[in-house]
Design a protein around this nucleic acid. Structure first.
Lengths: 217, 217
DNA sequence: GTCTATACTTGGATAGAC
DNA sequence: GTCTATCCAAGTATAGAC
């Protein structure tokens, strides 16, 4: 992307002030994406929110899109850290749905999934952005898959569906809930449905007692 | 909206040529939304695709956003007509999943859900657009709910979840699948999962034989 | 109703002073 | 590393000729 040797890289070293500026810009980019959407997230809108000069975006990131990708990296990493910490306390399906509901509520309120959704939707408008976003999305799948394996792996339910497909459904639902919730500002349906999911898992768990145990390949 | 008495209304009468121009613009807006996303759908991009003059957008629709809403109306109506026709042949859960899979494949390929997803995501960027999009989305919920009632209403499964919540999940999944599929251009996971859903419904149907019948309120 | 031409605004990006 | 100033492209929207 950035010309060789320029400070365009996200990981570029430099003074402490540099790092602080970059962080401020990334933070402002995230907030702008949440509030104004992809189409409303211009260099001017971001810099104004950060209280910094517009030219700094191009100095530090080379382009607006690069800054947006850095913003996506940031929220994605934050989510993974939070997720990973939570999942260590998980070993049963019930655990998983409980923790998932809690994290989901957190994400809805903080707007982190909004950033992802806006970047996915905005990817159609910028050549080459799609693959970059897809790359940053793939950890979400593997994380979800691991969580499912860890909590459902011993259950006969695991033989019903490949965990990679379940992970795909979870991520899709996460995105869909986010979009609907964001559109009308009403998070109740999504949260209520998470409650249903917990009951369903319990119910399926009861059924699974009558199913043959999972084949150990 | 448009000033009073101006031809901004979608339903405005006028010459046959007028109607044709409006249709061409709406069609071009749909295609542009699919190919370029919300942020890339400018008056210039639309008019160029339609082979018409850019000023016609403002003459006929008053603003670009109004044209986009007309485009959303158009795909939304088309979908509803198609859905409604399909659902008349449906009476069992198995019927529903079969038809749903078929329609879903159709929608993925035709890109109609893309239009919806881009409009939802883009709504964040334009003041007041959110409520307009939400209004046009509500028929999708009621339709899904009716379809569920019609096919699951007699099943004991219906007592597990309110059909309005199931409808919410379906719409969310539709959106989520669309975004993921659009991002990486690979529709296989989503289609495969529809296959799983059919098996699950069959399985649940078997289980439901052991459940108490639905209370007739 | 449609086109050309144009006014005005916003956005991405760079040069150069500090 | 940051700011001011500026260029240029693209966007919305309107006026007026046809």
């Amino acid at each position: 992307m950035a010309k060789s040797g320029t400070p365009g890289k996200v990981t570029a070293g430099g003074t402490a002030r540099s790092a602080q500026t970059r962080r401020a810009l990334v933070e402002a980019a995230i907030e702008t994406l949440k509030d104004e959407g992809f189409a409303g997230t211009s260099a001017r809108a971001i810099s104004e929110r950060a209280g910094l000069n517009q030219a700094l975006i191009f100095y530090h990131f080379g382009s607006v899109v690069n800054l947006l990708l850095a913003a996506l990296d940031s929220v994605s990493n934050d989510r993974m850290v939070k997720f990973s910490a939570a999942i260590n306390n998980v070993s049963s399906p019930t655990d998983l749905t409980n923790i998932a509901a809690q994290i989901f509520r957190d994400d809805l309120d903080s707007g982190h999934v909004t950033v992802l959704a806006e970047m996915i939707a905005g990817a159609s408008s910028v050549e080459g952005l799609g693959v970059e976003v897809a790359t940053r999305l793939s950890p979400w799948f593997t994380f979800a898959e691991e969580a499912i394996e860890k909590s459902f792996g011993d259950s006969p339910l695991a033989s019903l569906l490949p965990s990679s497909d379940v992970a795909y459904v979870i991520v899709a639902l996460y995105l869909g809930f986010e979009m609907l919730t964001h559109l009308d500002g009403n998070r109740e349906p999504a949260l209520r449905i998470f409650g249903h999911a917990q009951q369903l898992v319990t119910l399926l768990g009861a059924f699974s007692a009558f199913m043959p145990p999972r084949a150990t390949t």
